[in-house]
Amino acid sequence: MNGYRNRFAMLALQNAPLLLFAVLVIVFGLMSDRFLTPVNFLNIINQSSHIAIIAIGMTFVLLIAGIDLSVGANMYLSAAILGVFFVGMPPLVAFPLVAVLGLAFGAFNGFMITQLRVAAFITTLSTLFIGRGIALYFSGNKMVPFSKDVLTFGRTAYLGIPSAIWVFALVLIIALIVLKMTTFGRQVYAVGADPDAAAKAGINVRRVTFAVYCICGVCAAVGGLVSGSQVAVASSTFGFQKEFPVIAAAVLGGTSLFGGRGGVLGTVFGAVLIQTVENGLVMTNANPYIYPLVISVIIFIAVFTDSSRTTVLERLERRKIRVEPD
């Protein structure tokens, strides 16, 4: 009896974001006739691309029960360097270079965490400030305009689909393959489920940990690039506090903050859900000052769902001493 109730609770918890999404679409659809249109939905996906890309990287980190608070700073630093130093470069050279910069940023996080054994929270909190600090220094505290090439990239659509969505799709496919089809991907889940057991099973836990922060770094830089190509300039608030929607997207999509559970498809859904809310608020002419409030309520729901889910799971999996007939 108890088991059924738990299982029902589990089902509701697992599908909470989906329910939320359905409710939001209906509410916004009723409030604005521009909301429920194909153009608007393509627009939502386009606008959510950069968050989704970064959240895909974040998913890797969350899957091993880690955290990366520095993604927004990484975004800003990558964009600032692109705008200040890579001005004359052809995009085919500049864009990969930006990704490498992001990789280096993530590798620094990974090095601090795995080699110097600094807690991930503290490491990435400090690199958040370091990253923004360096970016502000390079940009001379001014707006950084992007080159024409970057803007062209941002405005181009291939087969009617904006370039941002293409990048987003590419990152998603690569992430799916890595997570589902490689030994490394499976080991990410193993480390997140139980790092001690993983070490005992012969998995190099440190290497896996280092790698996920590198992946997160690359994704943050690519996200910065995509976002930069859309907004044309990197102001000093570029990427500011982006870690919140990014983590919320992953958690809303079912990735647990406690590691081992979730995946990138859910994350993508979470990112789209958040953008849907912002878009809906715009469409319904809501007071801009309540945006953060609404977003934070959604983040709260995401985190609350995650911890409830963990509690229910723990109850389901508590060790039994007596074997009782069912």
């Binding site: 499976r186 889940y189 997140g192 489920a193 057991a197 559970r261 999996e317």
Partner: peptide, 12 residues
Amino acid sequence: FRNLSIAENLFI
């Protein structure tokens, strides 16, 4: 690892 399949556990 309870979050993985039998096969994945065997060959992790």
